[in-house]
Structures are given as structure tokens and as C-alpha cells.
Computed example of a mutant assay.
Amino acid sequence: MRIEIVDLPGLRKHRENGLDLRKTVLVGLDLTDPDDDSLLKTSLDGALLLGCTLRPETQRRAHAAGALLFPAVPGLPYEVYRSRLYTPAELFEGFDATQPETYALTPDARIYQHTQEQGHPPDPLHALAERLHDHGISEALDDVLTGMPIAVMGGHALTRDSEGYRGAVELGVQLGQAGFTVLTGGGPGAMEAVPLGVRLADKSGVDDALAVLASAPRFGSGRSVDPAEIGRWLAAGLAVDLPTGEQPRTIGLPTWFYGHEPPNPFCELHAKYFENSVREEGLLTVATGGIIYTPGSAGTVQEVFQDYTQNHYGSVGPAAPMVFLGERFWTEEVPAAPLVRELAKGRPAERWILVTDDAAEAVAFLATYASVE
């Protein structure tokens, strides 16, 4: 197992402990200072240096010693060798709530614009850079997650002034009170309503939060990006006063593939990806405590069957709960639940399928699974 070192204090401690750098991974370090350069005067066989800056003579020695050096890629609006998740403050840096159009200046908007300029698929250089970034995000997500996180899936189209949005917020309150770490797709609609509820902690704050959000009930429409419209939506979200604990309870997994949908400001951290397929499969895989499906469209239905496939074959561990919240929707309007139940007959997954209209029952079902597993 390789040891990953992402800052100079960590490298110094590693060397002070008498350890060499064989099969270590150094990420984004500037090692041109003589004192820092001296830290590399040890065995480097099999070391992996990602985006590090070295003195020319040290670079030659590292190559000769069998190290692999991946250079920094210039001119990109993102860190290729990223080793941590994004905070909303990072994604929205430079945004001025009094000037909503400044959303266009944020790293989130600029990175999306960059992907649009590259086309799909991007050329090999940018494709490789994006894959390396996404690999780092997946590793950072694994480092943050503990216990048995649960995920809530649902559509982006819920407006903040709708009853469905309120219901998703209240579901989040109950999940937060039950102590779950909650993952969502990280975008608008149900994906932001649930994290909002988790962080509100109790229902007493729901009305006040929704009153603040009422000034900007939707982020936009279609696949076009109107920075001012998104900025107004974002400004209203940032105006909600929310507590932040020592450990993140809400993590979003958005994607620049759907970059016209901005990440929401309520998730404490975002694992934002370029490749949507990696993001979707990853979200289903790390939600080891189960998944609640609220009404959604094609993307949510796709996730239902991706999730069930994992449960059917046990490809990523024991079958985890699948909770269909909204009985009429999931049995009549979009009858995915009956098909999943039919496929699960006689299998371990059958026990962990629930169709209900009761959020409290859904939360209790997940809690039961956590206590059993």
C-alpha cells in the first residue's frame, strides 16, 4: 500500500521517522528550496511524484533511481492532482451576492466553461488530466467517509417553494437527528433540500430557511447557463444561517458533465467529478448504509437499477436497503419498485426493499439495517 504525502510538514515528519520514499506518492509539492530538496536524498525506487516541482539535478536523479514523475499541466482552471474534497467556499470563491452575475467568475463556473471549450470527448491531454483529478477526488472521498453513509436520490427540478422540497427538507431533518452521514448528487432540488434539513437539526428552523429561499425558488431552466439567475439562487442559499460541525454530515457528489446545474451551498463538502459515470457508480458504491429514492426522472430511475444490480450480485458487499419514498409514484407513475421486488425474490436483497410514504418509517428502516450490519 502506497503512502500518500500531500504537504511539506507531512514529508518532513515521514523523513524524521527514518522512512525512505520508496513506493510513496508525493502530491503537488514545491521541493526546490535546499532544505526541502534534501528530503529527497534517500531511496526513491518506485516513488510517484505528481505535479511536484524539483531542481533539475534532483529530477534527473529521481528518474535514474526509478521514480515516476508526472508533471503539472499548465493552463488549467483546476488542480489535476487534487487530494481533498471541495468546500462550497472554494467552488464559489469570488462570488458577490450583491452582484449575482459574478457567479460566472467562480472556479465552479470557469471549470465548466473550460470543459465546454474542450468538447466531448476532450483531447488526450485534457482527458488524462480529468481522469487524474477524478481519481484524486475518489480517494479523498474514501478518506472522509466513516461508518455507513446513506444516500438520498431525487430530481433536480424541485423548486424551493414546492411541497416536495419541504418534504425533502423534513426528511433531511429526520436523517440528521438519527445521526446519519448523508450523501446526495450535490445539485439543486431534492439534492440540496435534504442536506439543508440535515444541517437544520430540527423542524423549528424549516419555515425560516424556506422563507429566505423563497426569493430565488429555482436555479434556472434547460441546459443553458444564466450566471445572474444562478447567482440569485446561490445568494439566497448562502443567506441561510446553518451550523457546521467538526465532522461533515452532508457530502454532495455533483459533476461538471451537468455543469449547468450548480452545486448546492448546503452540502458541507463536494466530491465534484468530471466523468458522470464514475460519479454515479461511486455514489451508489459508497452509500453502504442504503439509499432513499425520492420521486425523480430518468437519472433517478437509472440509479435505481444500477443500485439494484450491485445488490443483486453482491458486487460491492452485502445488499443494502433500497427505500422508495412515495408509494404511488414508485408503484404506479414510474413502477420501478415492483420490478425491483420481482428481481429480488429469494435473494438477500429482498429483505431490504421498502416502499413507503412515511419518512419516519424510512429512517427507522435504515437504522435497523445499520444495527444489524
Rank of each mutant, 00 (worst) to 15 (best):
residue 315 S to H: 05
residue 354 L to N: 01
residue 271 A to D: 05
residue 76 L to E: 03
residue 353 I to H: 04
residue 162 S to I: 11
residue 169 V to H: 01
residue 184 T to D: 03
residue 109 A to R: 02
residue 370 A to V: 03
residue 327 E to G: 06
residue 192 E to V: 09
residue 28 G to S: 12
residue 10 G to C: 08
residue 184 T to Y: 04
residue 38 S to T: 13
residue 22 R to Y: 04
residue 251 I to W: 01
residue 80 V to W: 00
residue 160 R to I: 08
residue 236 A to T: 10
residue 266 F to T: 06
residue 44 L to R: 00
residue 241 D to P: 02
residue 108 D to S: 13
residue 284 L to H: 00
residue 16 E to V: 01
residue 153 M to V: 05
residue 172 G to R: 03
residue 200 L to F: 06
residue 165 Y to I: 11
residue 22 R to G: 07
residue 326 G to M: 02
residue 223 R to F: 13
residue 172 G to P: 09
residue 271 A to S: 09
residue 110 R to S: 08
residue 73 V to A: 09
residue 301 V to I: 12
residue 372 V to W: 06
residue 279 R to K: 14
residue 255 T to I: 02
residue 136 G to F: 02
residue 92 F to Y: 15
residue 216 A to V: 09
residue 117 E to G: 13
residue 169 V to Y: 00
residue 334 V to D: 06
residue 119 G to S: 06
residue 3 I to S: 15
residue 157 A to I: 10
residue 21 L to W: 10
residue 11 L to N: 07
residue 371 S to Y: 12
residue 226 D to E: 12
residue 181 T to I: 11
residue 326 G to E: 04
residue 86 Y to N: 11
residue 372 V to H: 10
residue 366 L to F: 08
residue 297 S to M: 15
residue 175 L to Y: 00
residue 102 T to M: 13
residue 271 A to M: 06
residue 239 A to M: 02
residue 23 K to M: 12
residue 224 S to R: 12
residue 132 L to R: 12
residue 122 P to C: 07
residue 281 E to K: 14
residue 148 M to I: 09
residue 191 M to E: 05
residue 155 G to T: 13
residue 142 D to R: 08
residue 206 V to S: 13
residue 124 P to V: 09
residue 317 G to L: 02
residue 166 R to K: 05
residue 5 I to T: 04
residue 256 W to S: 01
residue 329 F to Y: 15
residue 58 T to D: 06
residue 299 G to T: 01
residue 156 H to K: 01
residue 50 L to S: 09
residue 67 A to W: 03
residue 127 A to G: 14
residue 33 D to T: 03
residue 45 D to A: 15
residue 341 R to G: 15
residue 361 E to Y: 04
residue 325 L to T: 06
residue 310 Q to A: 10
residue 292 I to T: 02
residue 151 A to K: 00
residue 98 T to C: 15
residue 320 A to Q: 09
residue 371 S to N: 14
residue 130 E to M: 14
residue 257 F to H: 13
residue 357 D to N: 09
residue 221 S to N: 09
residue 40 L to S: 11
residue 266 F to I: 12
residue 339 L to C: 08
residue 313 Y to G: 14
residue 33 D to K: 07
residue 363 V to G: 05
residue 168 A to E: 05
residue 206 V to A: 12
residue 119 G to D: 10
residue 361 E to R: 06
residue 135 H to G: 09
residue 157 A to L: 11
residue 21 L to I: 08
residue 90 E to V: 14
residue 97 A to E: 14
residue 117 E to H: 15
residue 203 K to V: 13
residue 138 S to T: 07
residue 344 A to H: 02
residue 307 D to N: 07
residue 266 F to A: 12
residue 268 E to M: 00
residue 281 E to W: 07
residue 242 L to W: 05
residue 316 V to D: 12
residue 360 A to D: 11
residue 97 A to F: 08
residue 343 L to D: 01
residue 170 E to D: 04
residue 328 R to G: 11
residue 22 R to D: 03
residue 185 G to R: 01
residue 255 T to H: 03
residue 13 K to M: 13
residue 248 P to E: 01
residue 42 T to A: 08
residue 262 P to Q: 03
residue 100 P to T: 12
residue 218 R to N: 14
residue 226 D to L: 14
residue 167 G to V: 10
residue 116 Q to T: 12
residue 295 P to C: 07
residue 322 M to L: 15
residue 13 K to I: 13
residue 338 P to H: 12
residue 193 A to E: 04
residue 206 V to M: 10
residue 349 A to T: 07
residue 316 V to T: 15
residue 302 Q to Y: 13
residue 104 A to F: 07
residue 30 D to C: 05
residue 205 G to F: 10
